[in-house]
């Protein structure tokens, strides 16, 4: 199982980056997003620039990479005609799908790093002295949360017949509702509950607090707890969707049908 998982992640990395559009999303898009965010926030304080330009555009790059890879991964296999083969393989389909998501997540991480280095080196943005334990602990949870959310999205999109339309649609609403480039406190009250139910909202909030020079565990407790809770909830949602896809495949025989 572990071997299949590792190989899937490795093969997925090669398959994803072979697509010119994904190359653009990983390498070029972060530069555009970072530049645009910097121009918009150019006159703000260094703290604000770091929180909204560096973290915000890095997260936008990560989210774009997920939208153009993991969210549509099952649909892509369906298009290639290989979905049925993966589904009947002796290794669990869930392990293969998680391997694919991890492979894509590594590219998303590289995309974030490209945005970060570009802003720091090219625009000379000041980087706060973060506390390594707090930052890397939070960052690990953020990556797990985004992976679980991607797993849920990939399966939820598989159940829909409008994967491509949803894939094209979902990018900006998440930027907006999850407050990647601004605090969600400015959003209307009726939108906030939606924001609170989405893991990216707490993920970016956690990173903003974790990159504060004077951050303490108690300051991180709220976003950390909510994010951890949402990870568990979305694992549950992911499991339900997985069973629904399996049901569709075995009972209705409609796995490879659009």
């Amino acid at each position: 199982m572990m071997r299949a998982f590792m190989h899937t992640a490795k093969v997925q990395m090669g398959l994803s980056i072979a697509r010119p559009m994904f190359k653009f999303v990983i390498v070029v898009n972060p530069l555009f997003l970072a530049t645009l965010a910097f121009f918009i926030y150019g006159g703000s304080s260094p703290e604000r620039v770091f929180q909204y330009v560096v973290l915000g555009s890095g997260f936008m790059a990560l989210w774009s990479s997920i939208v153009y890879s993991s969210a549509s991964e099952v649909q892509r296999e369906r298009f290639y005609g290989t979905l049925e083969l993966l589904f009947v393989a002796p290794v669990s389909f869930a392990a293969i799908l998680i391997g694919k998501i991890v492979g894509n997540m590594i590219w998303g991480l590289i995309s974030m790093v490209i945005a970060f280095l570009y802003l720091v080196l090219f625009f000379r943005i000041e980087v706060p002295a973060v506390q390594p334990m707090l930052f890397f602990g939070s960052f690990a949870l953020v990556l797990i949360a985004i992976s679980v959310f991607s797993f849920f999205l990939a399966l939820a999109f598989t159940l829909s017949r409008q994967t491509n339309a949803l894939m094209n649609f979902i990018e900006y609403p998440i930027y907006l509702v999850c407050g990647f480039l601004f605090p969600i406190t400015i959003l209307p009250d009726w939108v906030k509950p939606i924001s609170y139910l989405l893991p990216p909202t707490w993920a970016i909030e956690l990173l903003r607090r974790a990159t504060d020079e004077n951050a303490t565990w108690s300051q991180l407790a709220l976003p950390f707890s909510f994010l951890l809770g949402l990870v568990l909830v979305y694992i549950g949602f992911g499991y339900v969707c997985y069973r629904a896809v399996e049901h569709k495949a075995r009972i209705n025989g409609k796995l490879g049908v659009y």
């Binding site: 918009i40 926030y41 409008q162 491509n164 339309a165 949803l166 094209n168 649609f169 609403p173 907006l176």
Partner: peptide, 26 residues
Amino acid sequence: PKVYIFVMVLNPFSQLLFFAVLVNYV
């Protein structure tokens, strides 16, 4: 029509709304 609504109406509106909220805040 669902594809049209997603791609040609909702997607552009969400982009416009995102940038409007962003510049309004900044």
